[in-house]
Design a protein around this nucleic acid. Structure first.
Length: 884
RNA sequence: GGGCUCGUGGUCUAGUUGGUCAUGACGCGGCCUUUACAAGGCCGAGGUCGGUGGUUCGAACCCGCCCGAGCCCA
């Protein structure tokens, strides 16, 4: 970097992505090229705001980050050029369990040994290092993030917003605190939400246990239930039988005696019983699974808690008190066996719910927790989702199914240390909740005093602080509000935004796996706070799979590290690969795909060098453009139009392919070859430069480094004062009109002559003696003649003398089908067998007893040329070639 | 167990409401040093569109069933 030559953009030599890419990444950050420039008063329509996913600060960048951020960057870069100001912010999600665990392992400490604020301080220190690393890596991807707009979910400003959100929802009556069964992780010692659990296959034993009947309404003395969790029998509160279960119908209404513990429980009928499982008779404990909770609530059963928050047996378990659930399970099974209650025991493998963070199988516990009420607003959240544009559209179905399947309100309290505290105290006497004042936020009830001296309800003057913290999603779901600077204005007594022009956000990008977490929860929060859907559109990206289309996972050992990829390939090539899949589809990482990107960079570089030797950099626009040059610019107009549409619709793969084909095939292979023979023509010089500038601009969102390098080397006025290509205006069609058919035909003729040379093993610059063309190529004669080195080119006014023979008849099935229906088969057969007649005078085809008008069929003829030279036919021209 | 999505040459992929040669790239084979690029250019081979049954004059596309993969939820 000290070498001034190395920092000077130039087209000398080959393209050196290693040096160029890091140089520009640094320069863009230094110059704040991508800083958001909008102001709060401006029209929201000229502002494009992206609500980017804040990655969890606990690990390193993976391919999903790389892919997702690159897609967002395509949108950001296109919109920045096309539509004015863009906010492309960045956040670090460091307030969750993941960061807490990271801190504990990194510093070898336990959160329990610290006061909450102190521990959070440690967390911030540890996270800061990881965040710096994250920043470096994101910058190395060439993303056009505005690094002056970043946030951390644990920072005080965000804590304030999160607590404001809690208070606002509470005041709106959308939150409640309730003692209810919740999913509980005994390892993390916290309640968790449904979405934080996942299934895992575990080995277990199915135990058949005999229960005696204590009542006398049946002849039976006992029945057998099967369970994987015998340690729960002290918590057994009832036994259930299916109403359709004739075999066990006699048990309904009777009373059972629980073995060993000898308490008596009712036998009740309920259709939630799985008759196929075990004996069809099942015990209900508080709580073993989700069903138990439903029964507990539906039948108003008593609560018997045998397992405490650390998965240790309570005093309810009698002799087993103090044992872990595992130890108690074995001990109870042994005792059941000794007492003759154990009838069978067999090993099974079954799915159990585990906490996704620690893989511990979850329990269900009754505890006091805070909930956000969502079940009563399902319809509104569904409507909100419908209001957004979904890319791809099919992903809306996932959102819909998720909402339709919701059965629980959203549990937001967690019994953890790191995280954002609930701004709540409770009256020691009457348990009345006292909320913090909005002005005082953020607060931590563990170290701050409540805003009142005595309880407004009962007048008592002592308070208990709420010890819980918010679930991490309770804060992550506020990212649009965080980015827009949402706050409470005490004077106006209203919520305000520092940048109201940003909200609602234009785009919400994210992976399809977290539609039910991040997207759904964000819609819930923002909708309740602002009454608006927070996003105009959401773009759902697929997953990057390994080269065999399998999911990357550490246990499989098939993880591809972005660092490894980036050390071998230019970022621009990686970005080109990232644009290859349709948005929403999973797609494989294949190393060979990156070489296609590398080749393109090289092509763009080399083509730029050639253009630079062919034309002056700032040619004047000539009075009139020659046909060939006007043709190129008209085709360019078309490409610009198509590309703009594709990018507006987030169809990056289509845009990429359209541009590549036009650039490589039409511009490089066809036009540049012709231009080589016309370099002194002002018309060609102008077209070359116009097209070249436009190509750089069109490629800029995909290939930001190479386009910037070339732009600065060739077109920038003053390198010291950076005018980046990335802040230029997106190209628009200039309205060039040309005979596209003639251009197309001319290219066909050139292609035919190339084929001739190739087949005759001639070099492409070999001279051809004489060529005659019959076909529409007006204005392109010289181009054809020079590029193919034709000594004499003539245009035929009439079709060359040929003998023709009908080769085939093409039918227009799209109109023929509806008109003739099943007769089409006969018509086909008639033509195949030659039983038809073409009446040229009447312009009809008679076949199978029908008369087809001339717009229904087309006769393809095979010609044989008997004149001098060789005849080559193309789609719309005939070429006669004489060469000896 | 339920839902959603996806199966197209060796590999990856395009294919807007069904219309008759199914895109393109990588790879493969042959030829060509041409005012940038041989890591280039030109040409070529390669497919029963996962299987099966149906709707239709006509299906990669619509419907049923089956097989396989992935994700989400039980």
């Amino acid at each position: 970097m000290d070498d001034p030559e190395a920092t000077e953009p130039s087209l000398e030599g080959g393209y050196d992505p290693d040096a160029v890419e890091t140089r520009w990444q640094q320069r863009w950050v230094d110059e704040e090229t991508y800083a958001y420039d909008g102001d709060p008063g401006q029209d929201p329509n000229t502002t494009y705001a992206i609500d980017t996913p804040p990655p969890t600060v606990s690990g390193s960048l993976h391919m999903g980050h790389l892919y997702g951020s690159t897609l967002q960057d395509f949108a950001a870069r296109f919109q920045r050029m096309a539509d004015g100001d863009v906010l492309f912010p960045f956040g670090y999600d460091d307030n969750g369990i993941a960061s807490e665990r990271l801190t504990e392992t990194e510093l070898d400490i336990r959160h329990q040994d610290y006061e909450r604020r102190e521990f959070q301080e440690r967390c911030r220190e540890v996270c800061a290092e990881y965040e710096a690393e994250f920043t470096d890596k994101m910058q190395a991807l060439g993303t056009s993030i505005d690094w002056s707009h970043t946030y951390k979910t644990i920072e005080p400003r965000v804590q304030r917003i999160s607590q404001l959100s809690f208070l606002d929802l509470y005041e709106k009556g959308r939150e409640y605190r309730k003692k209810a069964p919740a999913i509980w992780c005994p390892e993390c010692e916290t309640a968790i939400s449904q979405v934080e659990t996942e299934d895992d296959e575990r080995h277990a034993h199915f135990n058949d246990i005999a229960f005696e009947i204590a009542s006398d309404g049946t002849d039976r003395e006992e029945f057998v239930i099967s369970t994987t969790r015998p340690e729960l029998i002290p918590a057994c509160v009832s036994v259930f039988v299916h109403p359709d279960d004739e075999e066990n119908a006699d048990l309904i209404g009777e009373t059972a005696r629980v073995p060993i513990f000898d308490h008596e429980v009712p036998i009740i009928e309920d259709e939630r019983v799985d008759m196929e499982k075990g004996s069809g008779v099942v015990m209900c404990c508080t709580f073993g699974d989700q069903n138990d909770i439903e029964w507990y609530q539906a039948h108003d059963l008593p609560l018997r808690v045998a397992i405490d928050e650390t998965a240790t047996m309570t005093d309810l378990a009698g002799d087993y008190e103090g044992l872990s659930t595992e130890d108690a399970r074995e001990a109870i099974v042994e005792d059941l066996d000794d007492d003759g209650f154990l009838r069978d025991r067999r090993e099974i493998v079954h799915d159990v719910g585990v906490h996704e963070r620690c893989d511990t199988s979850v329990e269900y516990r009754v505890s006091k927790q805070w909930y956000v009420e969502i079940l009563d607003h399902k319809d509104e959240y569904l409507a909100a989702g419908q209001e957004m544009d979904w890319y791809p559209e099919k992903m809306f179905t996932r959102y819909r199914h998720w909402i339709e399947g919701l059965e629980w309100d959203w549990l937001i309290s967690r019994q953890r240390d790191s995280g954002i505290p609930f701004p709540v105290w409770y009256c020691e006497d009457c348990d009345n909740a006292v909320m913090a004042e909005k002005d005082d936020l953020p607060v931590d009830p563990l170290s701050d005093e409540p805003p009142v001296d005595s309880c407004p309800e009962c007048g008592h003057d002592a308070f208990e602080p709420e010890e819980d913290v918010f679930d991490t999603w309770a804060t992550s779901s506020l990212t649009p509000l965080i980015n827009a600077g949402w706050d409470w204005d005490a004077d106006a007594e209203a919520f305000t935004m520092d940048n109201p022009e940003l909200y609602p956000f234009d785009l919400r990008p994210q992976g399809h796996d977290i539609i039910s977490f991040w997207l759904f929860h964000t819609i819930v929060k923002c909708y309740e706070h602002t009454g608006e859907v927070p996003f105009d559109a959401t773009m759902i990206n697929g997953h990057v799979l390994d080269e065999n289309r399998e999911k990357m996972s550490k246990s499989r050992g098939n993880v591809v590290e972005p660092d490894a990829v980036l050390s071998e390939y230019p970022v621009d090539a990686v970005r080109f690969w990232a644009a290859s899949a349709a948005v929403g589809d999973d797609f494989p990482y294949q190393e060979k795909d990156l070489t296609a990107g590398e080749k393109l960079l090289r092509k763009l570089w080399n083509a730029s060098k050639l253009v630079d030797t062919l034309a002056p950099r700032e040619p004047d626009e000539p009075e009139t453009l020659e046909a060939i040059d006007r043709w190129l610019l008209a085709e360019l107009d078309d490409a610009v139009e198509d590309l703009t549409t594709h990018l507006e619709d987030y169809e990056f793969a289509k845009a990429r392919d359209r541009l590549r084909t036009f650039f490589w095939n039409t511009f490089c292979d066809d036009y540049l070859e012709i231009a080589k023979t016309r370099e002194d023509e002002p018309s060609t010089q102008y077209a070359l430069r116009t097209a070249h500038r436009t190509f750089l601009e069109l490629w800029a969102p995909f290939l930001p480094h190479v386009t910037e390098e070339i732009w600065q080397a060739v077109y920038a006025a003053d390198a010291a004062d950076l005018e980046s290509i990335h802040t230029r205006e997106w190209p628009t069609p200039k309205g060039y009109e040309a005979d596209l058919e003639a251009g197309e035909t001319a290219m066909e003729v050139i292609s035919a002559l190339r084929r001739y040379k190739s087949e005759n093993q001639l070099p492409l610059n070999a001279d051809l003696e004489s060529v005659s063309v019959y076909g529409p190529i007006e204005g392109f004669e010289d181009a054809i003649q020079h590029v193919m080195h034709v000594q004499e080119l003539s245009i035929l006014d009439d079709e060359p003398e040929v003998t023709t023979e009908v080769a085939s008849i093409d039918l227009d099935y799209s109109t023929l089908g509806p008109k003739f229906g099943s007769k089409v088969g006969e018509i086909d057969a008639g033509i195949d067998s030659g039983e038809y007649e073409i009446d040229d005078d009447a312009g009809v085809l008679r076949v199978a007893g029908e008369e087809l008008e001339d717009d229904l069929f087309e006769v393809a003829v095979e010609r044989s040329y008997s004149g001098e030279g060789e005849m080559i036919e193309t789609e719309s021209a005939v070429v006669i070639l004489q060469d000896d």
